[in-house]
Design a protein around this nucleic acid. Structure first.
Lengths: 249, 249
DNA sequence: TACTCTTCTTCCACTGAGCGGAAGGAGCAT
DNA sequence: ATGCTCCTTCCGCTCAGTGGAAGAAGAGTA
């Protein structure tokens, strides 16, 4: 066990996630896999610095300092800001839930989201991750990902709904079409009752993000949605070009 | 020098700020006050975990993982979300730059901001900190802060513009009036050409945040602005009550 | 009030993880 | 070639971090 001090401190931070926004010391220690006394000391240091804070009841939560740091991340400052006005336009003209996502390792990371009022079950949240093979934005990012990433994702196509694509050959064929046609679609592959379209966002000639939307049904309006998405994606891309702070991987 | 390993890792993260979003290893080491070799090793660990990332040119930036963690902070999840619709309303009716801020130690921390089109010099940014004695939201937060905080702030009233209040007695008198009248004002105390009004946001009977706006001139419309602010602040407070994730210090 | 169970905090002697000076690249300008 | 700056790796010494254990502080329960 190569347990460096830093990795332990990070393990503590890593114990927090969307379902665990506040944790008692004991839970924290257990989730981080650390002895109680060790966790106690590290947590104290993290708190003193402002990385963690305590709620009135004594539980620990992520502190303001981490929040401030997060605002400095390129994901936040570059991509999001460039995209924000286009997402609003897109939402204005289509009234659908709009998503901006990047690839992070083998998953899709949602960077921005505008939620629509239409009652479509949407699972994503800003800052959350989902598998690549079952989402519109995921398929786009996968289509343009390095070969090795694509191969690794294909190894493990977990079924989520009855419509999730789990056969590597079929997914590969779909990805080929994404590259050929410039957009991807899904039909209830992540959650029943939700379909999606997505297009790549390019900075120069690299795909840096994917822009997508979720709607109850695609059939009727697909061409309209695709072109609206492409206009927005192109706009974002133009804003980004020249801003070197958006990196791919 | 009590240099724990964790504090060194945190010093590295702390080297980033609004003016230094990307740093070379050498700069990072210097700003964190660490020997190069030490910084190198720590930075490597932080990067492996996702707390830092490298730009194409090799410089380090805050990583996605920190950004994700930041989204879990109570500042972000509770207060901001509760306030968001009210801030938009407020902006819609007044067209002024609107601010939501909390106290963090002896400073004001800006949690949310809607920038107006009016040409008023505004120094705040989301995630940035400013001194309490020279801003509208700061005076509100100071007025309702624990006695000891108030005393410590009074020790050190740095002059920023010619209009900054630097006499403890005068500021104390102003704070008394804030508590009596329920709002604070500033006139070019932080930057010339900018005035501000602010009101407290209460959850139950504790003041958890301050809501303010910046305008070129206050005279004419003060009562209208104050009442708009109070309506919004009240709305935010009502949304917050029952959400225990907003703590006061 | 006394007992029990859980969670948090403090202590301290042992030891191996982290330290950092120094040497070795890598890149670039002159 | 030479000098410069910045990045990466190495390795033996040592002191910071470790974690078991004991004590404190609550919160039920009887």
């Amino acid at each position: 066990m190569g347990a460096t001090v830093t990795s332990r401190a990070l393990a503590i931070l890593g114990a927090f996630d969307g379902e665990h926004r506040s944790l008692s010391l004991t839970e924290l220690a257990r989730r981080a896999g650390l002895p109680l006394a060790t966790a106690h000391r590290l947590v104290g240091e993290l708190q003193r610095w402002g990385a963690l804070a305590r709620e009135p009841n004594g539980d620990y939560v992520i502190g303001r300092r981490i929040w401030q740091l997060g605002l400095l991340a390129p994901v936040q400052s570059g991509l999001r800001q460039a995209a924000s006005p286009f997402l609003h336009d897109l939402y204005g003209t289509t009234l659908a839930t709009v998503h901006l996502a990047v690839r992070d390792g083998l998953q899709v990371l949602y960077v921005e989201r505008l939620a629509g009022h239409v009652s479509v079950p949407v699972v994503s949240r800003v800052g959350s991750r989902l598998p690549m093979h079952a989402t519109g934005v995921g398929k786009v990012l996968l289509a343009y990902a390095p070969e090795e990433v694509r191969m690794e994702v294909l190894q493990n196509l977990t079924r989520i709904t009855a419509y999730t694509v789990t056969q590597p050959a079929r997914l590969l064929e779909q990805l080929r079409r994404v590259r050929a046609e410039g957009y991807s679609t899904t039909g209830e592959e992540m959650s029943l009752g939700a379909c999606s379209v997505a297009v790549p966002v390019r900075s120069g000639d690299t795909v840096v993000a994917a822009l997508g939307m979720v709607v109850p049904d695609l059939r009727r309006q697909l061409p309209r949605l695709v072109s609206a998405l492409q206009v927005a994606a192109h706009g974002i891309g133009r804003t980004l070009t020249g801003d070197p702070s958006i990196q791919w991987k």
